[in-house]
Design a protein around this nucleic acid. Structure first.
Lengths: 260, 260
DNA sequence: CGGGATCTTGAGCAGGTTCAAATGCTGTGG
DNA sequence: CCACAGCATTTGAACCTGCTCAAGATCCCG
């Protein structure tokens, strides 16, 4: 009825209060305008220089799929047939102990690639669950290998992207192994802030697409501890929260708490 | 004087009580006999099939270097010029918080590649310190890129190896986020056991090249907790320790404790 | 053989967990 | 459109695992 709903019908849903992400029609290919730095576009950019080979995006853009909250992109043990580039929305990935405990290994937003860990074993060893309405591009492994042979930039970018994932994981290991609850939550919020900023969302005001329970699981602390630290941060004037809406008031002080 | 010392003089030192690793003379290239599955050899193997292209090993075998306990392979911030393949010995890698806390991210033994995380940023974000006398092959990035262009198996194996590193890190995150002290130490010992077995060392009797303090740091628990769990495991008949010499008596029960 | 490093064990402490309960959203079906 | 069920969030209180501090034992290197 009102303006928001009209938008909803026309485009993939975004979170309220968010600046709109670059829109694209259903059959539109990746390009600098429609999808400035989605994972696929990044794959096709020359490492040193502005040139872009768009053969890959023009092929795989046909494999676009829409997922709803709770859907699984892939399951543990499933053979690897494709990797996934997120166009908009968000997804959590996690691994399991054999007695069923879960560790969330990442929250992923537009522009990020999923499934790279499966290349070693040809099977997924983690699971990916959609947190909100999300659109992904499916990149069949065969296509990826073919283009990797042909296009040098795809080859180099694949290495870069996997290397970046190794770096991100190192940071999380540092957090899980050596940081206390305050440092963990501050680090988490700043990481989100930076990633939103990089894609032109507000770095200080955003919605969390994941529950307190998910945040706690990811950070290796209890859900209740997440709540308590949020409350304390709010009392100290560092931020304001209203359910999943977060507003960061003092990035500097958060940085001091996070301790790299 | 006695037999052991004669060996020591002739070859790179190994730990007492260890079955000898495949030896090679100083100028000998990688080959199935001398270095059955060192990282470089693995890089050059066809993904599906037995064929091996030995151009890369024959080139980089000239860049062999010997390190002593405490030496650094690379430092945080240093530009990436080469990656390293361990021929024999062991190395720890770690990252730091900006207030100096350290998190060990891995212990690496013969056959493993180091430095892959630096490809994303062209600089090392972790540091590598040698735990015992260790020989590595240095693979200049330029050479790697050249061979990666020319030899398909190098390209595919690079992806596989980086993907495997992502998997290993996921396992460590699960450990750091969700396991208790007993589960952590059991998981650690079984991981070592499997890796030793893969390279034809004894899976049940081996030396640790790292201190209790390093183990604790890696597992996210205090040094003292490592000692206490070792003591308890020994009292329960799971294993026997004598300083850094470990003998595992009951892999099944350890597996139950570790909980995948 | 001496001294620093490493390992081990004990005792008290604390950060974070677990359990429990109240409150507030959300979305779903009638 | 509303009621209700179920889930998410928040807060309190008791508890516990693993930490810190301390000291002794052992090893290893020079």
């Amino acid at each position: 009825m009102f303006l928001g709903e009209i938008h909803m019908a026309a485009v993939v849903q975004t979170m309220p209060g968010e600046p709109a992400f670059a829109r694209l029609a259903d059959n539109e290919a990746c390009s600098p305008v429609t999808c400035r730095d989605c994972g696929i576009y990044g794959l096709c950019r020359e490492v040193n220089g502005p040139d872009v080979d768009l053969r890959l995006p023009e092929t795989i853009v046909r494999n676009r799929r829409l997922f709803k909250r709770g859907d699984l992109l892939y399951r543990i043990g499933e053979p690897l047939r494709a990797i996934y580039a997120i166009r908009c929305g968000s997804i959590k990935t996690y691994v399991l102990t054999n007695d069923g405990r879960m560790q969330i290994t990442g929250f992923h937003i537009a522009g990020e690639l999923l499934g790279l860990g499966a290349i070693a074993s040809d099977r997924f060893t983690s699971e990916a669950k959609v947190l909100e309405t999300t659109m992904v591009c499916e990149v069949p492994i065969d296509a990826l290998e073919a283009y990797s042979r042909e296009i040098p930039s795809v080859r180099q970018q694949m290495l870069k992207i996997m290397s970046q994932e190794i770096l991100d994981n190192q940071e999380l290991m540092l957090l899980l192994g050596k940081k206390n609850a305050d440092e963990r939550l501050a680090t988490f919020l700043l990481s989100l802030s930076r990633r939103f900023k990089r894609r032109s969302y507000s770095p200080t005001k955003f919605n969390l697409s994941m529950s307190r329970s998910d945040i706690g699981n990811y950070l290796g602390i209890a859900e209740e501890t997440v709540c308590r630290v949020f409350t304390r941060f709010q009392n100290d004037g560092l931020l304001a929260t209203e359910r999943r809406q977060v507003q960061l008031h003092d990035l500097d002080r958060l940085n001091n708490i996070a301790r790299g």
